[in-house]
Design a protein around this nucleic acid. Structure first.
Length: 284
DNA sequence: CACAGCACCTGCCCGC
DNA sequence: TGCGGGCAGGTGCTGT
């Protein structure tokens, strides 16, 4: 589910609910949830136990909890991951993968993930960017994000525009939904070859991506429940504000032409046939 | 090296 | 009611 706005809502919730607390116990319920932690579940549990959570950070769709002793817990929610703040000792839900208990006996933290594409791993980098995500590019909300530089890089590539927007090593945080929304706003088809686009066109798409994610973040933030840290912030945005994604046959908000659905990489792309004409030699 | 395709999972919904 | 196929918002690995 989660793209940058949803992950940022989760980060903010975690910041409010777990920073300053001491981890008393970690229980990995499903080893796949920590598969990227090579030393194994027991090692992860042991390294986190006794640590104080001192802060939170995020890049793109990755977030991490900063720990004392210059360590960090890296989190990726995958397609279905949630970080829930639940009453202490609550029985695990069906898809709970990891449970954290704290020394203050306050609410637990539960990592729930139906499809198990998400994962947690320990990192020794502290507040600095974890080394395993060194390849993840800055996202549009990063203070050092340089839209002109990203556009220049995209123009040098030989691929389709949507592929480039989804490539987390070029610009991070954009997923299938916000890519489609950005392309709709920029009135560009995702199969447009990157090298044939002008730099202003690419910047238009990148700026649209940032704008649509900023709007989603605003709405996701307002639907945040004080008790639960969740990724449902997206649902409000889903229903009200999507112009393209999932809108097959719905009249385009700009011109009234029914939105079309195309298949791409075994997933769906939605666009307006009139506002976003498909290029002759497109690269989907 | 850059790029495209596929694997990795579970559950739901649809048509037959 | 059961079964098969399609679909779901992500990433990393592998082959070309």
């Amino acid at each position: 589910m989660p793209e940058l706005p949803e992950v940022e809502v989760v980060r903010r919730g975690l910041h409010d609910h777990v920073v300053g607390r001491i981890v008393a116990n970690v229980a990995v319920q499903h080893p796949r949830a920590v598969r990227r932690h090579i030393a194994g579940p027991a090692d992860l549990e042991q390294r986190l136990t006794g640590a104080t959570i001192t802060g939170t950070a995020r890049r793109g769709k990755y977030l991490w909890l900063v720990l004392d002793h210059e360590d960090a817990l890296l989190v990726h929610l995958g397609m279905s991951g949630q970080m829930l703040v639940v009453p202490s000792g609550l029985a695990p839900s069906t898809h709970e993968r990891v449970r954290f208990r704290f020394a203050d006996d306050g609410p637990d933290l539960s990592f729930v993930d139906q499809r198990t594409f998400g994962h947690l791993m320990f990192d020794a980098g502290g507040a600095a960017l974890p080394s395993v995500i060194a390849h993840i590019a800055r996202d549009p909300f990063d203070a050092e994000y340089d839209v002109a530089a990203v556009a220049a890089r995209i123009k040098k590539r030989r691929t389709g525009l949507k592929r480039a927007l989804l490539d987390q090593s070029v610009v991070s945080g954009i997923g299938n939904i916000y890519a489609d929304e950005a392309l709709w706003a920029a009135q560009l088809h995702g199969a447009r070859p990157t090298e044939k686009l002008t730099k202003p066109q690419i910047i238009r798409a990148l700026d649209a991506a940032r704008e649509v994610m900023a709007q989603a973040l605003g709405q996701g933030g307002t639907s945040f429940d004080a008790l639960y840290v969740n990724v449902n912030g997206a649902s409000g945005y889903f229903d009200r504000s999507l112009h393209a994604y999932g809108q097959r046959d719905v009249p385009c908000a700009r011109c009234g032409t029914p939105i079309r659905r195309e298949s791409f990489m075994n997933r769906s792309s939605y666009s307006c046939p009139k506002c976003q004409p498909r290029p002759r030699n497109g690269r989907f």
